[in-house]
Design a protein around this nucleic acid. Structure first.
Lengths: 200, 200
DNA sequence: TGCTCGTTGTACTGATCGGTACAGTGGGCC
DNA sequence: GGCCCACTGTACCGATCAGTACAACGAGCA
């Protein structure tokens, strides 16, 4: 066998444990700051498991990126069912709640990675795709609003979704570096205000 | 002597060469991805110089952060003399021009670092301070506009400056990861539109 | 019971990491 | 001319890095 399989429940559990440990460590210490050895120590797995399921560290990082997207979207379930202005507010509240609850740093795991792997030809496309997936849910919600007649007819959901993503990530970056949720809160407020400018 | 001095023109040149090489390498490969050895090879300096001027790698990164701020502000000189709406547009044009000219990745060097050193207790405050300095120039310009009566009297320059920073950095993040300047261009357009909402 | 194969533990490698030790060297000031 | 000290070159250190080799384990199936 080559790699990546995990055809057994036990194997799946081990693989998941490795990815989970890597995701948690890399969220705080970055990719290069998180050694394979540390990941294995934290997950309780041995080196042979790691290289049984992943060809190399880069491939593990790829799995971590996927895990981050799952976690992120899981923390903002309202994004899947957006169909009113109230839903949009609920969504921004969920974004804030994640970090209100969390003990860790105020930061988007994908955003943290972006600077570090942004120029890696293998990993950058994965991060890009994760962002696009995230954005697509937002866009779909805005399409629903437009079709319900709550947005002016010629509003462009794709463009508005991108604008909202920009605000969210700018807010997250500033909030991270100042360790102050207010920056994100303001950014979300401005994003909502911007969207409301297209209210029908 | 301990460290950091450079009391001689020759010493200053060497120190600068080290910081410049480190800044260029870390912009692309990140902090952890840039070893001291690589920096010294690129700058032509020896290890004894490096540890003559810096206590350790962390302190070198501190100097790199300062260098980034100089480079960034140097690339947007309009930020120092903002006093009209036209100046603001010039400023956003300069922001775009930096990356139109550059051969490297579309990214803010400080933003790239943010994810990696955002939780480092020594370096995070330096990044924070750099952002605040950047923002303060913007804020000062908006105060001038307000005092000239081009902003409504109760507009809050600090808040508006923060909003603009959010847009800029969100736009830069998205533009970086998609390798597409359009994201930054749109973000700047939206930021300007938002500011114009406070036009007198 | 015994075979099979996905799974696991451990020991190891060569390269590279950040950092140190120490012996110089060369330019400026008296 | 000679001294001084900021500056430089090189060799080295232990730790840690990503990745490999290989022998064994154990659950399901016959």
């Amino acid at each position: 066998m080559e790699v990546q399989a995990a055809s057994t429940p036990r194997g799946k559990r081990t693989r998941d444990a490795i990815v989970d440990a890597a995701a948690a460590l890399m969220y705080v210490d970055g990719v290069a700051g998180t050694s394979v050895d540390k990941v294995l120590a934290a997950s309780g797995a041995g080196k042979s498991q790691m290289y049984h399921y992943f060809k190399n560290k880069e491939q593990l990082v790829g799995a971590v990126i996927d895990r981050y997207l799952e976690q992120i979207l899981g923390n903002q379930p309202a994004i899947f069912t957006l169909s009113s202005w109230a839903d949009l507010e609920t969504w921004t509240e969920q974004l804030l709640d994640v970090h209100r609850r969390a003990g860790g740093p105020i930061a988007c795991p994908l955003g943290n990675l972006a600077g570090e792997v942004g120029d890696n030809p293998k990993l950058a496309p994965l991060v890009d795709q994760a962002y696009r997936t995230w954005e697509s849910h937002l866009e779909r919600g805005l399409e629903v609003l437009r079709d319900k007649g709550e947005l002016i007819p010629d509003a462009d959901p794709a463009r508005l979704a991108r604008a909202a993503m920009t605000s969210v990530h700018g807010g997250l970056l500033l909030a991270h570096i100042r360790n102050d949720l207010t920056a994100l809160q303001d950014a979300l407020g401005i994003a909502l205000a911007y969207l409301r400018g297209f209210k029908r």
